[in-house]
């Protein structure tokens, strides 16, 4: 039993030696394999959720993302919808948004891209307030807080 323990311990140590030697040359390959696992995607609370509709305007595109209510076990009562303006951003952004695509406008938003002043005009009681309004590398992003 003592000898078996010694052999097992040394064998495990040599396996570890091999693991470390192959770790760095194989890092890209191991990382790519890990990245393909179903849980290896960024939570929508950070990404803003998938783009549900893109509206192509003259100088920019408006991406309306799906509303995010994601919680640990299901949906939360409070969430947000993210709107992205991509391309050339005018000094004053004024748009009305129908984020649930029921053909009724849900809110109007006005953004002064110089001062970042953002004014929200809700058209229904699901709209709470402006969570984030910020310039981005691609244009502008706004998160409007929602309730169910």
């Amino acid at each position: 039993m003592k000898k078996i323990k010694i052999i097992a311990g040394i064998a495990w140590a040599f396996i570890c030696l091999i693991l470390i030697i192959v770790l760095f040359p194989g890092l890209n390959s191991f990382s790519s394999s890990l990245a393909m696992l179903p849980f290896m995607k960024i939570n929508p609370n950070y990404t803003g959720g998938e783009v549900a509709q893109s509206l192509v305007m003259d100088n920019c595109t408006i991406d309306i993302r799906r509303p995010v209510f994601d919680g640990l076990f299901g949906e939360r009562q409070k969430g947000f919808v993210q709107i992205d303006w991509r391309g050339e951003i005018p000094a004053e952004i004024i748009d009305t948004i129908d984020f649930d695509f029921d053909n009724n406008k849900d809110f109007a938003i006005s953004i002064n891209s110089k001062s970042s002043e953002t004014i929200l005009l809700p058209f229904n009681n699901k709209i709470r307030d402006v969570g984030i309004s910020t310039p981005t590398s691609y244009g502008w992003a706004v998160r409007v807080n929602l309730k169910k």
């Binding site: 890092l27 890209n28 990382s31 790519s32 890990l34 990245a35 179903p38 849980f39 290896m40 995607k41 960024i42 939570n43 929508p44 609370n45 950070y46 994601d70 640990l72 076990f73």
Partner: peptide, 20 residues
């Protein structure tokens, strides 16, 4: 539980990617 990563980084970034 959510099958997602709760961090605003990149999964396969060249600098400090989550997977690597």
């Amino acid at each position: 539980f959510t099958k997602s990563i709760i961090f605003p980084g990149s999964i396969l970034g060249s600098f400090a990617g989550i997977a690597s």
